[in-house]
Design a protein around this nucleic acid. Structure first.
Lengths: 213, 213
DNA sequence: TAAACAATTTTGTTTAACAATAATATAAAA
DNA sequence: TTTTATATTATTGTTAAACAAAATTGTTTA
């Protein structure tokens, strides 16, 4: 076994993210302790670490519950993502290497291809890769970390805009425009376009949340 | 005594923020346990909570140290503040009440007054109040929390741009422009102006860090 | 001086315990 | 029966002592 605390942390985190432990569910320390096979003290530390990532909520004398978010909170987080990703794209436009630009274009072309063949899972994966390249080029590790914390939090809500009719083609076009702005190494344009992109994701979820959440 | 863990947490946090515990300093669990009068387990939990706020760093088998930041990291955080405060001002412009606008104007006039009389401490306090009113009006609690975490982290570096010659008058003028944009309830303008304001703070620190840090 | 080894310190974790609080079940009163 | 009060149980917050594993320090030797 890895370090007990790390193991317990990952054990609980996995089950929150895959939906085994649902929002608002109580997380009993003794039960987890027996189930995972580490002491209650260690479970408690793992829970504290999860609280840090906003995946659980700890109330005085009441213990931990899986954190649940209202639609408004989810939209707030997407608004934050909008400006943070804008910042990252702006920085990336100024410092992206030729190699990274080639990689980005390659990913984009694959996205085009997969979408044409309606392979949505792979499209989503490439989407993630596309944005990751921008993060890597951005040189603001602190902002990247914040974006990742937000993305992790929202993971279990399955905000799959890819399932909304017509959204895919729009999304692809937005990526093309982002790619162009980065190729032009135009910081203001890159920021504007990625903000519009994330803004559209937000609006799609605002409109279709009944299907998605 | 309040709850031991809360007490230990605040005890250590205070000393990090006031500079008693300096960046990179080792935080020994047994020593803290004896000093604060709580068990080592409780110290450990307090340290985990502080890690969450980026005030301490915990390394496997090496324990906790007071987190230290490079100038680049500080500038990264200010860049994040720039876009987050921009977001908050944009939202505030759309939802600020008449009462809050009056309060904001009142604070601005006092700032003018204190600056004229060179009362810099009070100017700083009002500055904080000015921005707090915008946060309150913004209706994005998640973003406000992030800004506050960043501000707390940077507190102990004493980024007092107020000490840079000529910066004060500039700062006052920027606040006037922000106030105007909010009075006009113009989201895009409010965002642009507060971004310029925080951007100027960042540039001032980039230029004068040798005096300030 | 550097390398090798031993001694010491510190951390990560466990176990068992107990008080304080919260949740639940039970009994008494309206 | 419903509500209210009381007792019971479960759960959390915390402590203390213990020990292995890892890191640090100190000492000796080449």
């Amino acid at each position: 076994m890895t370090r007990p605390m790390e193991y317990a942390y990952q054990f609980i985190k996995d089950r929150i993210l895959d939906g085994t432990y649902r929002p608002s569910q109580k997380l009993n320390e003794s039960d987890l302790s027996k189930l995972i096979g580490v002491s209650r003290n260690t479970v408690k530390k793992a829970l504290l670490k999860l609280e840090r990532e906003n995946l659980v909520e700890i109330e005085e004398n009441k213990g931990a519950t899986v954190k649940s978010h209202t639609l408004d909170e989810i939209l707030n987080y997407l608004e934050i993502r909008e400006v943070l990703e804008g910042l990252l794209a702006r920085r990336a436009a100024a410092s992206i290497t030729d190699g990274q630009l080639r990689e980005l274009q390659e990913v984009y072309l694959q996205m085009e291809d997969h979408l044409k063949n309606n392979r949505l899972d792979e499209y989503s994966n490439l989407n993630r890769k596309f944005h990751q390249i921008i993060y890597d080029a951005s040189e603001n590790r602190q902002a990247v970390e914040m974006v990742n914390v937000i993305k992790t939090q929202l993971l279990r809500y399955h905000l799959r805009t890819v399932l909304v009719p017509g959204r895919n083609q729009e999304s692809l076009e937005e990526h093309r425009q982002i790619l162009e702005a980065l190729q032009a190494r135009d910081p203001a344009l890159a920021e504007e376009r990625i903000r519009r992109h994330v803004g559209n994701i937000r609006q799609t979820i605002q409109t279709h949340h009944q299907i998605l959440v």
